[in-house]
Design a protein around this nucleic acid. Sequence first.
DNA 1: AAATAATTCAAACGTTTGTTTTAATTCTCG
DNA 2: CGAGAATTAAAACAAACGTTTGAATTATTT
Lengths: 209, 209
Amino acid sequence: MSQASTRDRILDAAEFLFARDGFHFASMRAITSEAKANLAAVNYHFGSKEALLEEVLKRRLVPLNAIRRDRLESVRDRAEREGRTPGPEEVLEAFIVPTVQFCCQDPGAENFSTLIGRAIAEPDDTVRNVFIHHIMPLFLLFFNLLQQSLPGLDADTVFWRLHFALGSTTHTMRLLGKLELLPKGLNRDVDVDKLIAELLAFVTAGVSR
Amino acid sequence: MSQASTRDRILDAAEFLFARDGFHFASMRAITSEAKANLAAVNYHFGSKEALLEEVLKRRLVPLNAIRRDRLESVRDRAEREGRTPGPEEVLEAFIVPTVQFCCQDPGAENFSTLIGRAIAEPDDTVRNVFIHHIMPLFLLFFNLLQQSLPGLDADTVFWRLHFALGSTTHTMRLLGKLELLPKGLNRDVDVDKLIAELLAFVTAGVSR
DNA sequence: AAATAATTCAAACGTTTGTTTTAATTCTCG
DNA sequence: CGAGAATTAAAACAAACGTTTGAATTATTT
């Protein structure tokens, strides 16, 4: 059986159920039951359901954001060292590749991917606020770098192109968790590396045309 | 005051609140209160909350899908008449332009746009099932036409590129309803026609590179 | 081993949800 | 005008929600 601590079992169960059912539909009773813990365990260990969500998001988001920040900064530094502006393809790659890759490393992260893939769309403030709070500084770095890589374009245009690219990315992450929606006759065993390459080529062509 | 029938007032209120709060968070009490109707009016006129949602979606989706179908079919027919395959840019335009335009024609449609912009991401089956049921045949027509416009590409590749494009589109529609998320210093008065042109250029470059 | 702290447990709390019921009211038409 | 249907109104329904409580149990420390 699961020998992890109650706290960790709850985190795993919550991640799974938040991803499958959404924050509001994943009830405390379902979470604690999935985690084989008592109903009151969430409030004891985390304080509230919302605090549990924050913990679930932080557990993956903090290391993932560190990776993305590192890669974005190294793109910036390398370009600066070589006395040139960064290219849009390397900026996009630095953000998108670890993002999509992160979601396929283990089943838990896969659940997490549907969660953040949906975070922006979520009508409920709870998820979106927590997510935006963690992603905003990174987003601004991303935005600034992309702007440098597209000299001559005004901020609005860069902003919209960036969002087109992020739309494709988050949509892809959502779909990776909902492959049952594919029409008949299509390959269900997705080669993730090939998919990332396709996505990257798509957004690069769109951004820097 | 509003002289529309109770039924119509409920439809408008539900469209607004479903878009603002999501299907599940928009309570019957909030809807009927917004519509200045009695709590029981929804169940009397529609049968259930879910049936109300179906009505809300159908009211906009049926005419919108008719427009999109017409434009897709006319692209197909014109190409056939001229003895050539349709080009990816005209296929994409036939779907995307009426989609985004539709959402800016009146305030009600704007609410509707956030609703369908979120429909695919929605964790709750209720919204997604109703939406998919209405959009699926149209999606297949779209998919087939795009496949014809990209000869030599296998179905999987075309499918993913189509979804990248749809990701950008739905993300854009979501953002049009959440402009408060823009970073400081960016233009808040979005020129929709310019935005559509940008989006179209983006996805066309991505799909047919 | 005793005492203290940390955790688990069952039960109940107060709200809110969508829906149903029954009576009152308004509208329609002969 | 008055009978009958359609609609609105107020009240109550059971079910589900997150949270709290206080006792029972387990783990840690003295």
